[in-house]
């Protein structure tokens, strides 16, 4: 991390010129390594944040379902975490966890919790009472009922939560560039600092593409695991 964060620290010239076009295609071949590195870091940060978030949310949702009185405190806390401004959250952790991946991951994870907890709870609430009653009445037993009946029915909601959490996190990772762990966001910030538009365009363009791709991927995944929702009686 460099000392100066201000824009234009090493200005080439801010105007869009032939020397500094919005996108110079040769940059892809010259800087393949750093672009791939940024992309990989972006994916790593996104997936680990959502992965950790899912584990924590799963546990929180389980607690909320088991003990009804915890629903309020859990949604309240996760809602509070969700509204912490990202710049403030990343910044405020630096003194404690330094410029490390941890500093980036903690806020990213916290931002996923509300989305995931809400959707997991919605998913399990969507299981019709009659279906649970029938499962009990047939002697499926609690764990079998939860795993083979309730979870599959809740799955579209959970996957949709993952979808929202993931694309949101892709966007937030770019902001983590301000503490040096931004994946593609570093290309954006770097480009802004040097007023060098090619890396900015590549970083921004790829992060948008990544978000849209992951969005589509989860859409397909959601359809793939819920074949029963596609065919309806007409």
């Amino acid at each position: 991390m460099t000392g100066a964060i201000g824009i234009g620290a090493g200005v080439i010239g801010t105007a869009v010129t032939n020397r500094n076009p919005i996108l110079r295609w040769s940059y892809f071949t010259e800087q393949t390594e750093s672009i791939v590195e940024a992309l990989v870091q972006h994916l790593q940060l996104t997936l680990s944040a959502v992965g950790i978030g899912l584990i924590i949310s799963g546990a929180l949702a389980a607690i909320a379902m088991k003990y009804q009185w915890t629903v309020g405190p859990i949604t309240g806390t996760t809602a509070f975490l969700y509204t912490i401004p990202s710049v403030a959250f990343f910044g405020v952790l630096v003194p404690y966890t330094g410029n490390s991946a941890i500093t980036a991951i903690i806020p990213l994870v916290c931002f996923t919790l509300l989305i995931l907890v809400t959707n997991i709870l919605d998913g399990f609430r969507a299981v019709p009472v009659a279906v649970k009653d029938a499962a009990d009445g047939m002697g499926l037993g609690t764990s079998r009922r939860v795993l083979t009946v309730e979870l599959p029915i809740a799955m579209p909601y959970i996957i949709n939560g993952l979808r929202i959490a993931t694309v949101t996190t892709v966007g937030l990772v770019t902001v983590a560039a301000i503490i040096g762990y931004g994946g593609l966001g570093r290309l954006i910030l770097d480009g802004l600092r040097r007023a060098f538009w090619t890396p900015l365009t590549i970083g921004a363009g790829l992060s948008i593409l990544l978000a849209l791709l992951l969005d589509l991927m989860f859409y397909w995944l959601g359809n793939a695991v819920t074949p029963w929702t596609r065919r309806k009686r007409t």
């Binding site: 019709p128 009472v129 009659a130 279906v131 649970k132 009653d133 029938a134 499962a135 009990d136 009445g137 047939m138 002697g139 009946v149 599959p152 029915i153 799955m155 819920t226 029963w228």
Partner: peptide, 16 residues
């Protein structure tokens, strides 16, 4: 329960 058939009004078929 596995040895007793159970039918309810809302049927409660597993939609998935």
């Amino acid at each position: 329960r596995r040895g007793i058939g159970y039918v309810i009004q809302q049927v409660g078929l597993f939609p998935h």
